[in-house]
């Protein structure tokens, strides 16, 4: 079954304490290559049937209204997962 992926990130200008904590751990591990870490969310929406334009519009609406909070987060991407390799398996 097709899967639509919604990616949500904390707003760039806002503090991301979880990402900062991971970045701090990288420093303690002696990994200087990565200077910053930001943590976001990935939703996988399974669709029973064909992904039409209307279904994509509905996914975008859901992403804006519920899956993200526009005060603190941005929806960065809504797309169809090609090759049906979702984390949930077959």
């Amino acid at each position: 079954m097709p899967t639509i992926v919604v990616e949500v990130m904390p707003k760039a200008e806002l503090l991301d304490p979880a990402g900062k904590a991971v970045a701090g751990a990288l420093g303690r591990l002696g990994i200087p290559t990565f200077s910053a870490v930001r943590i976001g969310k990935r939703f996988e929406l399974t669709v029973d049937g064909e992904v039409t334009e209307a279904v994509m519009a509905e996914a975008q609406q859901l992403a804006d209204d519920m899956l993200s909070n526009s005060v603190i987060e941005d929806v960065v991407r809504v797309y169809v997962l090609e090759g049906a390799t979702s984390g949930a398996g077959a």
């Binding site: 806002l14 503090l15 904590a21 909070n69 005060v71 603190i72």
Partner: peptide
């Protein structure tokens, strides 16, 4: 209340984690 839009703004993880 904030998520229901009855009050403005948002609440996130404490800055010190």
């Amino acid at each position: 209340l904030v998520e229901a839009h009855l009050l403005p703004g948002g609440l996130i993880r404490n800055d010190h984690g």
